[in-house]
Design a protein around this nucleic acid. Structure first.
Lengths: 220, 220
DNA sequence: CAAGGTCTGGCAGCAAGCTGCCATCCGGCC
DNA sequence: GGCCGGATGGCAGCTTGCTGCCAGACCTTG
């Protein structure tokens, strides 16, 4: 047996809305979206449609998931937007890897893919081919599961760590005792421990174990 | 502008080989593959084709990436297969999330998606639509980047952690002191510390900080 | 029942970590 | 010069973590 499915490619948001706008309004229970940052998908009409649906269905019955690149945390307005979306009931996560191409999966049965921005307008591809949708969704789930909630990225402890703190971090990571580490760094035991205490304060950790966890979270 | 691309759906491996077998032989520089485990993709002919191409192109010029679910590490024969593939020059990573649907991307221009096994034979979808390929590849990259090399899963520290050890881990992660934690878990101080010591041995950590790092590496 | 094993908890002692206090040193600044 | 704030290091004392040793509880095996 062999069958052929059709996939539709349109150029520009206007055309997408004209051609597939009704699909957004048809969302029933699941809306999954992966993109570099919220700005790449302005589409106010579609956003409103999804939001309405979310309110109408009530919590738990309608699931909205949004996956972004770390660049979505770059500026405050975008962060505020994420908080807003999150407060509205959507789950927002950040993937460590870039997501150059926008992907939307609706109700596990429809996929919309967006290419990079182009002068003639962005290219959008829409398909409902079951195996394509299943394959894309499978990869989306994999990327989703290995990403973390955007709130866990926000505290922003990492930038405050200077080279000195990094050295202490490395010493701690090596598993050396304070005495060994302090000698290696050319510090007195007292000062080294002061540094460790400072580091733990910065990491908001109550124990060294917890500090290790946090440090790993922030990428060692 | 609106265009329609064709995607081809076939049922069963035989039909896939007949219809798209030549595509495997056409691999030039990049072969990316995501699957639950190596067994789901037997296809000896295709594997051989890729292997030949890998040898012919030489190292660095031809990239093979394979992404599997943790279930690929479940039994020793499969692990041995991973080591073999890895030794042949392919990069093998394990994603924390399940990958129920097989995905293959060839030379960043061709996508093959496989559905779940079915009595009538598995369904395969082949497409070369640029935006579809780009979208799938984008998600693949995201899943790939957030996954780790399979060798880092092999030491097998994770499986040895029973529910008891998990509880200790959580207590440590909470930042509580040993006394608080032991009371919370209904253990004596002595036993709790024994558990912590066992955990650190299992994690091959010399300090609690290091144990925290390792624990985070293995996914808390 | 006895003998052996494993798991547990208490005790003790040591090692490691944590911190307050103070003396010191090294800038900048009036 | 004198003064000051900040960083450093030594000291002391406390808390916490770590482990060896032994005793008891429990289970399995003979």
């Amino acid at each position: 047996m062999e069958t052929t499915d059709r996939i539709i490619t349109v150029r520009g948001e206007d055309e997408l809305v004209a051609r597939a706008g009704h699909l957004f309004a048809s969302v029933r229970e699941d809306f999954a979206c992966a993109a570099r940052d919220p700005d790449t998908w302005s589409q106010p009409a579609a956003q409103a449609a999804v939001r309405d649906r979310m309110r109408a269905a009530g919590p738990g019955r309608f699931e909205v998931r949004k996956l972004f690149s770390p660049s979505a945390l770059a500026d405050e307005p975008t962060r505020a937007h994420l908080r807003e979306v999150s407060a509205a009931g959507a789950r927002v996560r950040i993937s460590a890897a870039p997501l150059p191409h926008e992907t939307i999966v609706i109700d596990r049965r429809l996929v919309i893919l967006a290419g990079p921005a182009a002068p003639a307008g962005r290219e959008y591809t829409v398909t409902s081919s079951p195996s394509l949708v299943a394959g894309v969704l499978s990869l989306f789930e994999a990327a989703w599961e290995t990403s973390r909630d955007f709130t866990s990225w926000l505290p922003g402890d990492l930038p405050h760590l200077d080279g000195d703190a990094r050295a202490v971090l490395r010493a701690l990571a090596s598993g050396a005792t304070d005495e060994t580490a302090s000698r290696r760094l050319g510090l007195s035991l007292r000062t080294y421990r002061r540094r460790v205490a400072d580091l733990m304060t910065a990491l908001q950790a109550d124990s060294r174990f917890q500090a290790g966890l946090r440090a790993a979270d922030f990428g060692l």
